[in-house]
Simulated scan of single mutants.
Amino acid sequence: MVEYESTSDTDLLLAGGDNNALTKLRTYLINNSNRSRLDLRPLAHARVVRERNLSGYIAHLSTLRESRWVSETKAPYFGDEVIAHRALGNIWDDYQFDQPTTTLLDGGKFKEMVYDLKETQHREPCSKCQSLGQIKCRECFGFGDYACEKCQQGRIECCQFTLCRRCMGEGSYICDKCMGRMRIICSTCLTRGYIPCPDCAGLRFVLVWTKLHIRWENHESVVALNGGNSNILPISVLKNSSEKSICFQFDDKWNTTQTINNIFDTCWGLSHELQANICKSFQTQHNDKSGRIIRLFCMIEWLHIKQIDYTFGQKPGNIYTFCLYGDHENEVYDNQYPYKSGGGGCGCTVL
């Protein structure tokens, strides 16, 4: 927090006429439709007690995290020449691939790529069929046929009408599915009871290699520091103000040897409290063990805030506060103007 005491003599300034800050407050209250019940007459007797220049900060922190994992892939071995087999190395240090060149990904929060590590491929006996080249048929369980579920003893019940064209009065007719045989030939294995192994295509051997999966995703957080006091200006107002200006920005590659404090070395005058809050956010929301941070983006926006403490002549012991903010102090925030329409005296009551 950067804070300065005003060097102007406020009392002398007000003695000569209206104060610019109070004029802005009065204009703000008049134009605010939600304040229609406010009685602004006491404001004509208000005077400024103190003015303080404060700084509000919004830090946008984004990291591009890379995660890696492997999976095993198999394919039938057709007798092709196999590349010299090499054991899988360290998935982080031994395999280098192109990485995104921007911290914030376009079109979404993550991106994935899969790489075939052909140098790890090797031939091995098929484990699914125990290198036999075939497995038991799943339709007939190795019998080559299966019982017909449509009929009983090869016939289907009908009626006993002599004119029935299906049973001719016999009360049943031959099953048209099994043709009276009570069992149906398996169309999958064609009575053999076994089918070619789907993993090795009946060739008894498979080609095995490793796939490396890489996922990039964004992690984002926002850190706010509001003049050292969250009651001065709500964080929502600070975030939405159009008067902020960028006072620091970093967007570059990141590695495990760097620390978040390093990026602030070139940012002079930055609040130590804000740095501490950014570091805490980085450690708790970004720096977990699920992967590696490969890029970091940090943008700090600054907003000038002038805190005005004022009082009314009728009640000089009560101090109230409002804020002017922005480069030209043309935005006003007030949430405690104390007078609303009422009865008695000057028509004012304290909330």
Rank of each mutant, 00 (worst) to 15 (best):
I293K: 02
G326M: 01
K289Y: 09
I294R: 00
D288H: 03
L324V: 04
H304R: 14
F282C: 02
L303Y: 01
Y333I: 00
Y325K: 06
I300E: 08
T311N: 03
C323S: 11
P316L: 15
G313W: 07
H286E: 09
G326N: 05
E301S: 08
F282R: 03
I300L: 00
T311H: 05
F282G: 12
Y320V: 07
M299N: 11
K289C: 12
D334W: 02
D334L: 09
N318W: 07
N287H: 10
N318K: 10
Q283G: 06
Y325T: 03
I293M: 05
R295I: 02
D334F: 09
L303I: 05
G291M: 07
G326S: 12
N318R: 14
I294N: 04
N330E: 09
E329R: 12
C323E: 10
C323T: 14
N330Q: 06
Y337D: 05
G313C: 12
Q307S: 15
D309C: 02
I319M: 13
H328F: 14
I293E: 02
F312D: 05
G313H: 12
K306F: 04
V332A: 01
Y337C: 08
H286I: 06
F282D: 09
T321E: 13
E301C: 09
L324W: 03
Y320P: 04
G317W: 09
Q336I: 08
F282H: 12
D309S: 08
C323N: 14
Y337S: 13
R292V: 08
I300W: 00
G317R: 05
I305Q: 02
P338E: 15
I294G: 08
P338L: 14
I308G: 10
T284K: 11
V332F: 02
I294C: 07
Q307G: 05
F312S: 05
I300K: 01
G317M: 11
H304M: 04
E301V: 00
F297D: 03
V332G: 03
P316Q: 14
I305F: 00
V332W: 01
C323D: 07
R292C: 12
H286Q: 10
N318P: 03
L296G: 00
D288M: 01
L324G: 04
I294V: 10
F322Q: 04
F282K: 06
K306V: 11
Q336W: 02
C323A: 15
Y339L: 15
C298N: 05
D309L: 12
G326I: 09
Y320G: 04
I319D: 09
R295F: 01
D334K: 09
K315N: 15
K306Q: 15
Q336G: 13
P338M: 07
Y339W: 15
L324N: 01
S290Y: 13
